[in-house]
């Protein structure tokens, strides 16, 4: 039987949101989901950096939020569904975030989706060739 961790690690371009990620990103995700409340959205809007000090995040996590560095947020334990709250706050369609995370232009990403999406060939396993 294949070890689950090995099987997950073989999937390219994918971060498994497991317990390690939860522990790493808990405060970052707590900030992101705080934006579900209108009062908190107002407070964040009034001063982003000051609002972020309310959460016991790392400086790197705060920096990634302020810079809207979506890929870095993911790497630092951000959960994609929590990150959606920040994109909604900004009025950024999440498809644009997807384009950024894949290193594609927004137009190229939209064209790919409208043509049926990213093909599976080459994207199933790291044993195949890498994405990009």
């Amino acid at each position: 039987m294949t070890n689950p961790a090995d099987a997950f690690n073989d999937i390219p371009g994918t971060i498994l949101f497991n317990g390690d990620r939860l522990r790493q990103g808990y405060q970052l995700n707590k900030f992101l989901t705080s934006l579900l409340e209108a009062d908190n959205r107002g407070a964040f809007k009034a001063g982003e950096a000051a609002y972020l000090t309310k959460f016991a995040m790392t400086d790197e996590q705060r920096d990634a939020v302020l810079k809207r560095d979506w890929t870095r947020m993911l790497e630092l334990g951000g959960n994609v569904f929590c990150m959606v709250k920040l994109a909604v706050f900004d009025g950024t369609p999440f498809q644009h975030v997807n384009a950024i995370m894949t290193g594609m232009s927004i137009t190229a990403y939209e064209d790919m989706m409208n043509a049926g999406g990213r093909p599976m060939a080459g994207n199933r396993s790291k044993k195949e060739h890498q994405i990009g």
């Binding site: 999937i11 390219p12 994918t14 990150m83 894949t102 790919m112 049926g116 999406g117 990213r118 599976m120």
Partner: peptide, 16 residues
């Protein structure tokens, strides 16, 4: 089928 995070965002697997 869909993935909305990471470099594999956008995969669609009609066959599966």
């Amino acid at each position: 089928s869909h993935q909305i995070h990471g470099a594999r965002s956008g995969i669609i697997n009609q066959e599966f």
